[in-house]
């Protein structure tokens, strides 16, 4: 039985699904300043949430990014500059180039992206397919990815990143 299938079963239990979402939401808020769009693409974008961008750009930077800063507020770092740096460090530029990210389904706003994923409500492929590189040993890949997530999180807290609700209306 695959992880997806086990989770799909478990999500049918209401208590499990609500507890899971509580943990998922809090974790993603802390680590990624997640906006709970319910249509998660974090595993494609180097674990940087593109919905933090004032223009919610999911496929690449807008034309206004200037030397890594945002056109809306030049003191802020362009979210896509963070994404580019993180995916480069993970050697996963292919995830950006090869995945067309469709517009979010707004009916899923504020719901668990994991539940939506295993229930097949999202068009993007399963996170398990994209999380780690296939041609590298898992023993090396897992710490790499975890380290990058923590590094991004440190940048998010200390750097001039866009944070939740700063300079733009909540989603």
């Amino acid at each position: 039985m695959s992880v997806d299938a086990i989770l799909e079963r478990a999500f049918q239990n209401r208590i499990f699904s609500q507890a899971f979402f509580l943990v998922e939401r809090k974790m993603k808020e802390w680590l990624f300043d997640c906006q709970s769009c319910g249509n998660c693409v974090l595993s494609h974008t180097g674990f940087i949430c593109p919905m933090r961008c004032p223009k919610s750009q999911r496929n690449g930077p807008c034309g206004g990014a200037m030397d890594g800063h945002c056109e809306v507020d030049i003191s802020k770092r362009c979210v896509w500059d963070e994404i580019w740096e993180s995916t480069n460090r993970l050697h996963r530029i292919d995830l950006l180039t090869n995945n067309y990210e469709g517009p979010p389904d707004w009916r899923l706003y504020g719901t668990s992206a994991w539940e939506n994923m295993v229930a097949g409500r999202l068009e993007s492929p399963s996170i398990f397919e994209t999380l780690f590189r296939k041609d590298e040993p898992l023993l090396r890949e897992v710490p790499r990815v975890v380290f990058q997530i923590l590094r991004n999180c440190y940048n998010l807290i200390t750097g001039p990143s866009w944070r939740r609700y700063e300079g733009r209306p909540p989603l």
């Binding site: 999911r58 034309g63 206004g64 056109e71 809306v72 990210e101 517009p103």
Partner: peptide, 28 residues
């Protein structure tokens, strides 16, 4: 097909920005 400038750069800075699609999904 363009993404467009952000609303706060114009003369109605308090307007609700939409950006439901981006330039790539608009082309799509």
């Amino acid at each position: 097909c363009l993404t467009g400038d952000y609303v706060s750069l114009g003369d109605h800075p308090g307007a609700k920005p939409v950006f439901d699609l981006d330039s790539v999904s608009l082309l799509h």
